[in-house]
């Protein structure tokens, strides 16, 4: 038990140590309001990191999620302005994300370009493509029911937290217990062995990129409803070019730290929360 969860335990210890320091230096850190703000601010990263875990488990990487996030955010707003109810607009953003993920996945799985190259290319192309189309303009004048899904702020925050938690727990359980989860590990451990065992490793790789794209859209939609307007550089982040990579790297690092045991053994939800919450 101890040996199996060595990484999680070291992360927990690190977090407890930081917590202890904060308790002395800034006790306000533990106030409910602050914890809630932190949770909401990091929730998108957590959801994206869930997808990243899958990608990294198959031995790939996706550094284009920052650009995908920006596009999905804008898409959420555009669909909402077209008159779709907010939840549907969010679902449509997931579709957009899945579409972008499928491009990555197809290039990695069937054209067999290394994922770092594919997603480097799509990161740059999608980011600049979005800038080209929007010219940096924000999505404004969103319908009145857009913010908080038309609910009260508190209930929308609860929905968000609930969905994120359900996703984390569900994925953890699914990876452990479902055939669909086990094939991800199998593909990551040895694509050749997986193929001999009757798994189509290329299909698995393709699928994890699609899922990551969809989760990115999901995260973008949940993030978008916290505000009245949608800037077109969300997730691409501060300082333009590098911001994108930083955001992406953060996700990648979060995913790496949390996701892949060297033995390819197991992942727990705790790990992902810890890794993503940085």
């Amino acid at each position: 038990m101890l040996e199996r969860h060595r990484r999680e335990i070291s992360l927990v210890v690190a977090i407890l140590a930081i917590g202890a320091v904060l308790a002395v230096v800034a006790p306000g850190f533990f106030a409910f309001a602050n914890q809630r703000d932190l949770m909401l601010a990091n929730m998108p990263v957590l959801i994206v990191a869930l997808g990243m875990v899958l990608v990294i488990l198959t031995g790939q990487i996706d550094i284009s999620v920052g650009s995908q996030f920006a596009i999905c955010s804008v898409a959420t707003g555009v669909f909402a302005r077209m008159g779709l109810p907010t939840p549907l607009a969010g679902a449509a953003a997931c579709l957009v994300g899945a579409l972008m993920g499928s491009v990555n996945g197809a290039l990695v799985a069937w054209v067999r370009i290394p994922s770092i190259v594919v997603t480097l290319a799509t990161m740059v192309a999608l980011r600049d493509g979005l800038r080209w189309v929007t010219q940096g303009a924000w999505v404004q004048d969103l319908p009145p029911g857009f913010q908080w899904f038309g609910q009260s702020q508190a209930s929308s925050e609860l929905i968000t937290a609930g969905c994120a938690a359900a996703l984390a727990v569900g994925m953890n359980w699914g990876l452990r217990n479902l055939a669909a989860g086990r094939v991800v590990y199998a593909t990551g451990s040895s694509p050749n062995a997986a193929r001999l065992a009757g798994i189509n490793p290329r299909l698995v790789v393709f699928a994890v990129f699609v899922v990551t794209g969809a989760l990115t859209g999901f995260a973008a939609a949940f993030n978008a409803v916290r505000f009245l307007q949608i800037p077109s550089n969300l997730g691409i982040g501060r300082g333009g070019d590098s911001g994108g990579s930083r955001h992406d790297c953060r996700n990648a690092a979060g995913g790496t730290a949390a996701g892949r045991d060297r033995s390819g053994a197991d992942v727990s939800g705790v790990q992902r929360v810890l890794g993503a919450g940085d």
């Binding site: 290039l107 370009i113 190259v117 594919v118 480097l120 290319a121 799509t122 990161m123 740059v124 192309a125 999608l126 980011r127 600049d128 493509g129 800038r131 080209w132």
Partner: peptide, 12 residues
């Protein structure tokens, strides 16, 4: 902005 789009395409 075309730089990024074309670079990405050329790269792939």
């Amino acid at each position: 902005e075309m730089t990024g789009v074309v670079t990405g395409v050329v790269l792939v």
